[in-house]
């Protein structure tokens, strides 16, 4: 069964109600809309299907495009991945501070402006429709294995208080405002995107949450 974003209401999300709506909002700039469709699985989803979906979610979460800003309590963003060569802390001695939005006298937005315009310039600080920042410190992904990230993502005390529906809604809302997940799949400027597409990622999150958010066995 394939449904459009109207299914968000059916899932109890209640935020995005219009059927088939194109998610085109942002911080006021105009550019192409992002069409996402919530594909509700038919019947029960097996643990195996859920784990397969998780593997793909992990590939996204652990990709440098995402993990570089999901760093620990040192509040230092990272530069890693094929666009950067050797893995190293963000240049220019950057520290996002306890606030995670940059030290108070120089927030991330000093250089990373807030805009929904496409990122087109190589080496320029990227921007999104959300104020640039590190992910909350509870969401540490950089250098973490699949079991660790999985346990964090399904724990409401460490995922922003979200249940399964909340995780799906998080992706939809991100697309609506063109925030970081959306950027990760289309980072521009010659940066390698996270694997797959935003739609693939949404499909996987729907599948994984429908399967009860299974995590891989630490023993493999």
């Amino acid at each position: 069964m394939k449904k459009t974003l109207g299914l968000a209401s059916a899932l109890g999300l209640g935020v995005i109600a219009a059927m088939g709506v194109a998610l085109s909002h942002g911080s006021g700039d105009d550019d192409a809309a992002i069409d996402l469709v919530v594909n509700q699985p038919e019947g029960d989803v097996s643990r195996e299907e859920g784990l397969a979906a998780w593997d793909r979610i992990f590939a996204v979460a652990s990709h440098p495009r995402c993990a570089n800003c999901h760093t620990d309590e040192n509040n230092v963003p990272m530069w890693s991945g094929p666009s950067y060569g050797k893995t190293r802390p963000h240049g220019m001695n950057i520290n996002a501070g306890m606030s995670r939005i940059g030290i108070e006298s120089m927030p991330c937005t000093t250089c990373h402006t807030q805009s929904t315009k496409p990122n087109t310039i190589p080496h320029a600080p990227p921007h999104t429709g959300h104020v640039w920042m590190l992910a909350p410190v509870e969401f540490v992904w950089f250098g973490k294995d699949t079991q660790t990230i999985c346990a964090q993502m399904r724990d409401p005390e460490r995922n922003g208080g979200r249940d399964g529906a909340g995780l799906v809604e998080h992706i939809l809302h991100d697309a609506e405002i063109k925030a970081f997940i959306t950027w990760g799949f289309n980072p521009g400027g010659g940066r390698e995107p996270a694997p797959g597409t935003m739609q693939d990622h949404l499909n996987d999150m729907v599948t994984w949450t429908a399967a009860g958010m299974p995590c891989p066995d630490p023993a493999g």
């Binding site: 220019m92 001695n93 950057i94 520290n95 030290i103 006298s105 120089m106 000093t110 250089c111």
Partner: peptide, 8 residues
């Protein structure tokens, strides 16, 4: 703090 604010 000076270094962090001005290194960029």
């Amino acid at each position: 703090q000076i270094d962090r604010a001005l290194s960029a």
